[in-house]
Amino acid sequence: MKKTEKGFTLFEVLVSLFIIGVALLGIAQMEVYILKSSQSSFNYTVATIRANSFVDAVWADLCNAQEASASLNTYAEIRTDWIAEVSDAGMTATETYTSADKTSIVTIRWTDPRFTDDDLNNTLTLDVEFPDSGCGE
Protein backbone atom coordinates (compact mmCIF):
# COMPACT_ATOMS: atom_id res chain seq x y z
CA MET A 1 0.00 0.00 0.00
CA LYS A 2 1.10 3.49 -0.84
CA LYS A 3 1.19 6.05 1.89
CA THR A 4 0.10 9.54 0.76
CA GLU A 5 1.48 12.42 2.74
CA LYS A 6 -0.81 15.15 3.89
CA GLY A 7 0.28 18.55 5.17
CA PHE A 8 3.32 20.76 4.57
CA THR A 9 7.00 19.98 4.75
CA LEU A 10 9.36 21.93 6.98
CA PHE A 11 10.89 23.63 3.93
CA GLU A 12 7.51 24.93 2.74
CA VAL A 13 6.76 26.32 6.20
CA LEU A 14 10.13 28.12 6.33
CA VAL A 15 9.60 29.67 2.89
CA SER A 16 6.13 30.84 3.92
CA LEU A 17 7.49 32.39 7.13
CA PHE A 18 10.22 34.17 5.15
CA ILE A 19 7.67 35.65 2.73
CA ILE A 20 5.42 36.76 5.59
CA GLY A 21 8.44 38.32 7.38
CA VAL A 22 9.45 40.32 4.30
CA ALA A 23 5.86 41.53 3.86
CA LEU A 24 5.64 42.61 7.52
CA LEU A 25 8.93 44.51 7.26
CA GLY A 26 7.60 46.34 4.19
CA ILE A 27 4.42 47.27 6.04
CA ALA A 28 6.46 48.51 9.03
CA GLN A 29 8.64 50.66 6.77
CA MET A 30 5.54 52.11 5.11
CA GLU A 31 4.08 52.93 8.54
CA VAL A 32 7.24 54.84 9.52
CA TYR A 33 7.04 56.88 6.30
CA ILE A 34 3.37 57.63 6.94
CA LEU A 35 4.19 58.89 10.44
CA LYS A 36 6.96 61.14 9.08
CA SER A 37 4.64 62.56 6.43
CA SER A 38 1.92 63.11 9.00
CA GLN A 39 4.24 65.18 11.21
CA SER A 40 5.44 67.17 8.20
CA SER A 41 1.83 67.88 7.27
CA PHE A 42 1.15 69.04 10.83
CA ASN A 43 4.12 71.44 10.71
CA TYR A 44 2.94 72.81 7.36
CA THR A 45 -0.55 73.37 8.78
CA VAL A 46 0.83 75.18 11.84
CA ALA A 47 3.02 77.37 9.59
CA THR A 48 0.01 78.21 7.40
CA ILE A 49 -2.04 79.21 10.44
CA ARG A 50 0.79 81.37 11.80
CA ALA A 51 1.34 83.10 8.43
CA ASN A 52 -2.36 83.81 8.12
CA SER A 53 -2.45 85.18 11.68
CA PHE A 54 0.06 87.85 10.59
CA VAL A 55 -2.03 88.73 7.54
CA ASP A 56 -5.17 88.89 9.69
CA ALA A 57 -3.47 91.16 12.24
CA VAL A 58 -2.41 93.59 9.52
CA TRP A 59 -5.80 93.35 7.83
CA ALA A 60 -7.64 94.10 11.08
CA ASP A 61 -5.74 97.38 11.45
CA LEU A 62 -5.28 98.08 7.75
CA CYS A 63 -6.03 101.80 7.99
CA ASN A 64 -3.32 102.41 10.58
CA ALA A 65 -0.88 100.05 8.91
CA GLN A 66 -1.16 101.92 5.59
CA GLU A 67 -1.38 105.44 7.01
CA ALA A 68 1.90 107.30 6.49
CA SER A 69 2.32 108.64 10.04
CA ALA A 70 1.36 105.44 11.89
CA SER A 71 2.41 102.93 9.27
CA LEU A 72 5.93 102.29 10.47
CA ASN A 73 5.02 101.97 14.14
CA THR A 74 1.83 99.92 13.74
CA TYR A 75 3.19 97.61 11.07
CA ALA A 76 6.48 97.16 12.92
CA GLU A 77 4.69 96.30 16.17
CA ILE A 78 2.47 93.73 14.45
CA ARG A 79 5.49 92.28 12.66
CA THR A 80 7.67 92.13 15.79
CA ASP A 81 4.96 90.46 17.86
CA TRP A 82 4.26 87.96 15.10
CA ILE A 83 7.94 87.03 14.60
CA ALA A 84 8.28 86.47 18.37
CA GLU A 85 5.18 84.25 18.34
CA VAL A 86 6.53 82.18 15.46
CA SER A 87 9.95 81.90 17.12
CA ASP A 88 8.32 80.64 20.31
CA ALA A 89 6.84 77.81 18.21
CA GLY A 90 10.33 76.75 17.08
CA MET A 91 10.03 78.19 13.58
CA THR A 92 11.82 81.00 11.75
CA ALA A 93 9.81 83.79 10.14
CA THR A 94 10.72 86.50 7.65
CA GLU A 95 8.47 89.10 6.09
CA THR A 96 9.14 91.65 3.38
CA TYR A 97 6.68 94.49 2.75
CA THR A 98 6.72 96.63 -0.37
CA SER A 99 4.77 99.82 0.27
CA ALA A 100 4.62 100.87 -3.39
CA ASP A 101 2.38 97.98 -4.42
CA LYS A 102 1.22 97.04 -0.88
CA THR A 103 2.50 93.47 -1.13
CA SER A 104 4.04 91.30 1.52
CA ILE A 105 5.99 88.07 1.22
CA VAL A 106 5.69 85.97 4.37
CA THR A 107 8.08 83.04 4.75
CA ILE A 108 8.16 80.52 7.59
CA ARG A 109 10.81 77.79 7.92
CA TRP A 110 11.09 74.97 10.39
CA THR A 111 13.51 72.15 11.03
CA ASP A 112 12.40 68.58 10.50
CA PRO A 113 15.37 66.20 10.83
CA ARG A 114 13.39 63.36 9.28
CA PHE A 115 13.41 65.12 5.90
CA THR A 116 17.02 66.22 5.56
CA ASP A 117 17.13 65.74 1.80
CA ASP A 118 14.32 68.12 0.87
CA ASP A 119 14.18 71.69 2.21
CA LEU A 120 10.94 72.37 0.32
CA ASN A 121 9.09 70.26 2.89
CA ASN A 122 10.26 72.67 5.59
CA THR A 123 9.25 76.03 4.07
CA LEU A 124 6.01 77.95 3.57
CA THR A 125 5.86 81.13 1.49
CA LEU A 126 2.75 83.26 1.34
CA ASP A 127 2.43 86.17 -1.12
CA VAL A 128 -0.08 88.75 0.07
CA GLU A 129 -1.45 91.80 -1.68
CA PHE A 130 -3.26 94.25 0.60
CA PRO A 131 -5.90 96.48 -0.94
CA ASP A 132 -5.69 100.23 -0.76
CA SER A 133 -7.68 100.94 2.38
CA GLY A 134 -8.92 104.33 1.29
CA CYS A 135 -8.92 105.42 4.95
CA GLY A 136 -6.99 108.63 4.35
CA GLU A 137 -9.56 110.00 1.90
Rank of each mutant, 00 (worst) to 15 (best):
E85N: 11
I20V: 06
E5N: 09
W82R: 09
I34C: 07
G26S: 06
T94G: 07
T92D: 10
E12Y: 03
L24D: 02
V22F: 03
L10E: 00
E12M: 01
W59E: 15
N43C: 07
A68E: 09
E95M: 08
I34L: 14
L17E: 00
E67Y: 14
R50I: 04
F11E: 14
Q29D: 12
Y75D: 02
I27G: 05
D81F: 06
L10T: 04
T103C: 03
D101P: 07
F11L: 14
S71K: 07
C135A: 04
T48A: 12
L14H: 00
Y44L: 13
G21N: 03
N43T: 06
G134T: 01
R50N: 14
T103W: 10
T48F: 10
N64I: 04
G134P: 00
D56F: 12
V32L: 15
L24Q: 06
S41D: 12
I34P: 04
A57Y: 11
F18A: 12
D88S: 10
G21Q: 00
V13G: 00
S40Y: 09
T116A: 12
L62V: 02
D132I: 08
W110V: 00
Y75R: 13
N43I: 03
L35G: 07
N43Y: 15
E77T: 14
L72R: 10
T48M: 12
I105V: 14
R79F: 13
I19Y: 03
F54Y: 15
T9W: 00
L35A: 12
A100D: 13
I83N: 06
L24V: 10
T103Q: 02
Q39K: 10
D56L: 06
T98G: 06
Q66P: 09
T125G: 01
K102H: 12
E5D: 08
I34H: 14
S87T: 13
E67T: 13
N122Q: 15
L35E: 13
L14A: 04
I49R: 13
S133D: 08
E12F: 02
Y33C: 07
R50L: 15
A23Q: 00
R79I: 07
A89Q: 07
D127M: 04
Y33A: 11
L124T: 06
F115H: 09
T92I: 11
E67W: 10
F18I: 05
Q66H: 05
P113D: 11
M30R: 11
L14E: 01
L72S: 13
G90I: 01
M30Y: 15
I105T: 15
D61I: 01
L17M: 06
I108D: 04
T4S: 09
P131L: 02
E129K: 10
D132R: 06
N52F: 03
S99P: 07
L72H: 10
R109E: 15
I19C: 04
R109M: 05
A68N: 10
G136W: 10
E67D: 15
E129S: 06
T116Q: 10
D127L: 06
V55H: 05
T116C: 03
T45G: 11
W59A: 11
S37H: 12
D112S: 03
D88M: 07
S53R: 10
D119F: 08
